[in-house]
Design a protein around this nucleic acid. Structure first.
Length: 202
DNA sequence: AAGAGGATGAACT
DNA sequence: GTTCATCCTCTTG
């Protein structure tokens, strides 16, 4: 159990980081209630040239400002007024790269995750999809801007020694970004092959 | 000051 | 496959 260091996030290749995050563990610890899931699906967003990114063309607004932080910070935002989407900011300061976590496999304290989702027993719906996993882990927009590397942070990433071989990583186009022109075809969505815990297939 | 729309999920037919 | 829930953020006037 090893918390990922700042150097993991500050690398320049956000697409590589998105792949490296598969098999890592996303942990939250709010008020002594720890929950954790193994990451099985991610998407890379690379401003300024990626039209699908909120920070495309280096747009700075109050919401996107956190994306310009140095890598290792959480970017959480509300989608459709309902869903909290969790991203990890990567790269150097003033470089607005981020990786969206799209699905995790439940790992620790599944009981609490079920409770948060109003479910009785574990199924893939528990944590498949960016809005579902944040609800299960208790992540909300108010956590945007939190460091994932500070010692007292309630959210962090762990390496528990799981290695996903390159052959087990499938790439495909990102979801819900049809408006992004040619960027919509970039295959920057990554998932673990044959995992029953990812969101719907390509 | 007001309105449109969004990196979605669940519950329908 | 289709619909709708639901609210913040950004743009425009």
């Amino acid at each position: 159990m090893q918390k990922l260091p700042p150097t993991f996030y500050t690398r320049t290749d956000v697409v590589q980081i998105a792949k490296d995050l598969l098999g890592k563990y996303l942990v939250t610890n709010f008020e002594g209630q720890l929950t954790c899931g193994k990451i099985v699906e991610t998407e890379a967003y690379r401003a300024p040239d990626d039209k699908a990114s909120h920070a495309w063309n280096n747009r700075r607004t109050r919401r996107t400002e956190v994306m310009f932080s140095e890598g290792g910070v959480a970017y959480v935002y509300l989608c459709y007024g309902i869903h909290h989407l969790f991203n990890v900011v990567t790269g150097a300061k003033d470089t607005a790269h981020a990786v969206l976590i799209r699905a995790v496999e439940p790992a620790d304290n599944v009981e609490l995750m079920l409770q948060r989702r109003n479910m009785v027993k574990p199924a893939w719906q528990l944590t498949a999809g960016p809005g579902a996993l944040t609800k299960a882990l208790g992540i909300r927009t108010e956590h945007s801007g939190l460091s994932l590397t500070a010692v007292d942070s309630p959210i962090w990433m762990e390496d528990r020694g799981v290695k996903i071989p390159g052959a087990e990583i499938l790439a495909g186009p990102r979801v819900g970004v049809a408006y992004a022109g040619e960027c919509a075809y970039w295959e920057w969505r990554f998932r673990v092959k044959d995992s029953p815990w990812t969101s719907r297939p390509f």
